[in-house]
Design a protein around this nucleic acid. Structure first.
Lengths: 156, 156
DNA sequence: TTGATTGCAAAATATTTGCACGTCA
DNA sequence: TGACGTGCAAATATTTTGCAATCAA
């Protein structure tokens, strides 16, 4: 196994900042670190804000809003709106790039789903509509297997 | 051709209101009529508000917000968030139900796309993840054919 | 040094709510 | 009539902006 360490990932992220002409500030590192600590999570604004404040109590909302926007623009984070909330995730972790979210209406869990069929499907859109897809948001709402099981048990 | 007339569609919508225990008020009819007038359009709040005000100058924001939420909850309208805006469309027109939006980053146009492959794709998710999909939002961002052509001409 | 970044507070937007009045069934 | 719906204004929530101070390069 050659899993990439969190330190390595941070190095990559810092390189990404440099590449984009952004300064490596402590506030930005704190933010990116929140993502690194929990790579599979989709964070909403409030959670990010609370987590950032744990590291730096004076972290300002404006700073967070500004950096989120910059990071999304520069392609470091992706933004996904589910329900009424915006969720952010490190694009780095989604080498799969375009993936789908499976959102459970019962427990609110957000899982990711990816398959080569999705790529095939997108290529088909390109061809059929002469539309160049370069990014996609796919949200499927439904009931996850855990909740299905729980519901069945309740009915017993 | 047996195209359904707008009157018929309004009748269906009114029936939908009744079925859901909602009163048939003038304000609601005005709102639904905005959608009927332009069936293929995805309306944002401001556009809906302006259109409603044309028919009833005192139409209030609260009324519009409330009715939009009710209609979305009852499944009469669907809500889709693109960029920072919420867009609404009559579900009635989307018998296809789950369809994708092709959003052009240049001109902002929003086209709809549907194919049986999408249905197949969703069924696969059901099976593979044991996740019951009952609704989906799919937004693909890219460049539409018109803009591609325009860009090519500019480069000449 | 110098332009980018930050925190704070204020401003601008977006959305919801309380309430008196109106109206659909 | 009576519950539901509406408009207005006020309250909240969300996001952006101006600006002086600070910081990274």
């Amino acid at each position: 196994m050659n899993a990439i360490s969190k330190n390595d990932l941070m190095t990559l992220l810092i390189r990404a900042l440099k590449t984009n002409g952004l300064k490596i500030t402590e506030k930005r590192q704190i933010l990116l670190n929140v993502f690194l600590k929990n790579p599979d999570t989709h964070f909403d604004f409030d959670t990010l804000y609370q987590e950032a404040k744990k590291e730096w109590p004076h972290y300002g909302v404006a700073t967070l809003y500004r950096n989120l926007r910059i990071f999304v623009d520069k392609g470091i984070l992706s933004e996904n709106i589910i329900g009424n909330k915006k969720y952010y995730e490190l694009k780095m972790f989604n080498k799969k790039k375009i993936h789908a979210h499976l959102i459970c209406k019962y427990c609110g869990s957000i899982d990711e789903y990816y398959s080569p069929d999705l790529v095939k499907y997108i290529k088909m859109i390109d061809k059929k509509y002469d539309f160049d897809v370069y990014y996609g948001e796919l949200n499927f709402y439904g009931i996850c297997s855990n909740c299905k099981r729980a519901i069945k048990n309740d009915l017993k």
